[in-house]
Every structure is written in structure tokens, then in C-alpha cells.
């Protein structure tokens, strides 16, 4: 049983970091908050060090692309876990595709290092302050960010397949 409720978490954040929460919702008992991209490091530091909350475990960090969300096309979703309270929190931050920059949290969570590289690799989101931001899974020569919803799934560089056999 959690020692702290979702409402109390939101209360704590609103008191100490006013204006940090853009929106908050709860689904299946898990709280989701959206924050401005420039507040990421601030908020994570606060949640990590807070004596009641102690969100000290980063479960997951990933990117997402909403092509129709003007000026908030690219997003980063963080899942953090408070082990002492057995409570999880989902945090979303969005950046414009024209300038996809967000603060790195790798100085707070060591595990964020590779996950941020992966997010950069597939979505082109630049994590400022990351110690070694380069592609991690794809070949270094790749010139695009393959999981952005801008490209057909198939390899565009191949010459040997006759498209008419594949209905395209």
C-alpha cells in the first residue's frame, strides 16, 4: 500500500515548483503529468530528493512522435518509481520538431544514459548535457530518425525489389 497518494504528489509539486504541472490525469491508478521541457531536470531533482516521495528509480524513458500536434510534435515519456512508497509516476514533456531540445536527466539517473541515446537515435530528440549523445542501435551513417512518422517502413535505398509485386 502506498504511503503517499497521487493527489499528495501533485500537491507537493505545485507547492514547491509552481507552474510546473501543465496537466495531470489518472488512469488505472497511475498518475500522469505533463510538464514544460525546460522543467525536466528541476522536477526530477525535486522528486528524487524529496524526503516523502523519493522517486529514485527510472523505469523507462522513451520518445514519441505526434505529427499533428503543432509545436509539440516530439515527446519524451518518463516512468519513475518510488521504491519506498511502491508508487509509479508517468511524466510527459513535449518539444517542437523544429528545435527538439530537452534537458538530459543522466546526471540524476545513470540508466537514462543509454535510453536517452536510444531516443535520440530513433526520434532525433537532443538531450542537452548528455555526456555521449550518439546513435546506439542504428548504423552511424544513418541520416534520418527512423521512428518518426515521416517515412515508409520499408528500406528506401534498395534497388532489387519490384514495387508492383508488393502492391506499392
Amino acid at each position: 500500500m502506498a504511503n503517499i497518494t497521487n493527489e499528495e504528489i501533485i500537491q507537493h509539486i505545485q507547492t514547491d515548483l509552481p507552474g510546473c504541472i501543465l496537466s495531470a490525469e489518472e488512469s488505472f491508478g497511475m498518475c500522469t503529468i505533463e510538464i514544460p521541457a525546460n522543467q525536466v531536470k528541476n522536477l526530477f531533482q525535486f522528486l528524487y530528493a524529496h524526503p516523502q516521495m523519493e522517486f529514485q528509480f527510472l523505469t523507462d524513458l522513451c520518445g514519441i512522435h505526434y505529427p499533428n500536434q503543432v509545436d509539440k510534435e516530439l515527446g519524451v515519456v518518463y516512468h519513475i518509481h518510488s521504491l519506498v512508497n511502491n508508487l509509479r509516476l508517468r511524466i510527459k514533456a513535449f518539444v517542437p520538431k523544429a528545435n527538439p531540445q530537452i534537458e538530459s536527466v543522466s546526471s540524476i539517473f545513470k540508466s537514462a544514459n543509454w535510453q536517452e541515446r536510444e531516443t535520440f537515435d530513433f526520434y532525433g530528440i537532443v538531450f542537452t548535457g548528455h555526456p555521449n549523445l550518439k546513435r546506439i542501435l542504428n548504423v552511424d551513417e544513418m541520416t534520418y530518425y527512423p521512428l518518426r512518422k515521416e517515412y515508409p517502413l520499408e528500406d528506401q535505398h534498395r534497388t532489387d525489389k519490384n514495387d508492383s509485386y508488393f502492391g506499392r
Binding site: 542504428n138 517502413l153 532489387d160 525489389k161
Partner: peptide
Amino acid sequence: DTYSVLQG
């Protein structure tokens, strides 16, 4: 037939 796989 995807971006990450060598096509042969």
C-alpha cells in the same frame, strides 16, 4: 524489408 536490416 525495413530500415535496419541488410537486404541480402
